[in-house]
Simulated scan of single mutants.
Amino acid sequence: MSKLSDLSAAGTAVWLDFVDRKFLAAGGLQKLVDEDGLTGVTSNPSIFEKAMGHGDAYDASLAKYDAAHAGAATIDRYEAQAIEDIKAAADTLRPVYDRLDARDGYVSLEVRPTIADDTDATIAEAQKLWAAVDKPNLMIKIPGTLAGGPAISATIAAGINVNVTLLFAQDAYQRIAEAYVTGLEERVRQGQPIDRLASVASFFVSRIDSAIDKKIDERVAAGDKDADALKTLRGKVAIANAKQAYAWFQDFTASERWQALAAKGARPQRLLWASTGTKDPAYPETLYVDTLIGHDTVNTMPPKTMDAFREKGTVAETLTQDVAGARHVLAEAERLGLDLTGVTDTLVEEGVASFAKAFEDLLGAIAKKQPVTA
């Protein structure tokens, strides 16, 4: 077994941030499960846009669908293809799900990013996708926007697994964790079981450093009087932010409110580290894996990062190391006016907009493949 298997043994589940029909058909996912102990898959509109919008991997399947559903809407044509891939990934991961008694083995499918600010539409689409895939190891991905909070509670209460995406800030993460618990409590009130429900909170990492480092570099280049202090924060703010989120998670799961649910079989909403590929070539490729290892967490990696960790990653329980140092980094970032709150607010807006654009581009590419009718 590989270092990725060691990572799982240390408490951080290994998920793949990629899905592609050719990859699935060639047994690529099964190989990762067998050789690296992979236990999950995430997808998003950008991933599907690259997979479906370019090349011919989906052309035959689209033609078959079109022959059976003449005049189908583009969104329906897309969903049919996405659902086929998600079902295939779920089937590959089903033995993992069964072996781990529903603790892992999940694949995620995202609601349309264009409805990120519409609670009712998000709930309705989550229910529709859940029914269409019809696999117990599916997670419906819902953006952690203000409108997403009540949608997450309602979806959990309905017995649907949820992957909350686009979390950057401490307060946003805490609000989503509360939403998960509220959903569980409602389900208990209804007399429904909660022992096989699962959720992850996808906390994004590298994008924070990209934004903060850009601010730092601009100020240093301009001869800022705090240049030396600023330079010490390069590549450290995102990790510090994640460590603080994990510290809060540990306190929250020790609380009486959570323990009351745990006594009924509830499972914690694991923190999932997303955007873990490094953007700055000056940083080690495994930076956002090596430094974020701890129990009840997940790291979803693009293939390139997974390959790098397999070769040169370091396994140690790092999330609980030097938490005081993480607090100091965040305090310094505030003292130096790097405006982490403003950065995270902007990143959420940009993330929703980026996924929405990728989704619209995807639909446009699929529309071009629409058969011409007489």
Rank of each mutant, 00 (worst) to 15 (best):
K243M: 02
P371G: 05
T12V: 06
A9Y: 08
E79H: 10
A68R: 06
Q370R: 14
A353D: 14
L363D: 02
A9I: 13
G71M: 04
S46L: 12
P136Q: 01
D224L: 07
A169Q: 10
A9R: 15
G277K: 14
V133H: 02
D118V: 03
V205A: 07
L100S: 14
G235A: 06
A229V: 05
P113R: 04
A201S: 14
R219P: 12
D361P: 02
D6R: 13
G40S: 00
K3W: 04
A240S: 09
G223D: 10
K369M: 07
K215S: 13
A70S: 09
D120A: 14
A227K: 15
S43A: 05
P95S: 05
E110G: 10
S153N: 03
I156C: 02
R327Y: 03
K243G: 02
W15Q: 13
G277I: 11
S46F: 05
G351D: 09
A333W: 12
N161F: 00
S354E: 15
A73K: 13
D345M: 00
D36F: 00
A126E: 08
N299G: 04
V343L: 07
A374M: 12
T276H: 09
R187G: 01
T92S: 01
D6E: 15
D98H: 01
Q81A: 11
D209K: 10
Q174M: 10
A179M: 04
V237C: 10
S255G: 11
D20Q: 15
Q321S: 06
R267F: 07
P284K: 12
N299Q: 03
L230H: 09
K225H: 13
F48M: 11
A57Q: 14
Y173S: 02
D228W: 03
G277T: 13
R99M: 03
L24E: 08
Q190N: 10
E350R: 15
V181Y: 00
G265N: 13
D296Q: 11
A324K: 12
M139I: 05
A260D: 14
Y97T: 05
A324L: 05
G183W: 01
R327L: 03
L16R: 11
Q170A: 14
A308T: 12
E360L: 09
K236A: 11
E185N: 04
E317L: 09
D280A: 06
A72W: 02
P284F: 02
A266E: 11
A245I: 00
P150F: 08
Q190I: 01
T42S: 02
S153M: 06
Y283T: 00
A60H: 09
T155L: 06
T42G: 00
D209N: 12
Y97V: 04
G191E: 04
T341E: 12
Q30H: 06
A172M: 10
A326I: 03
K279E: 10
D91P: 03
T286V: 05
R335T: 12
E334D: 15
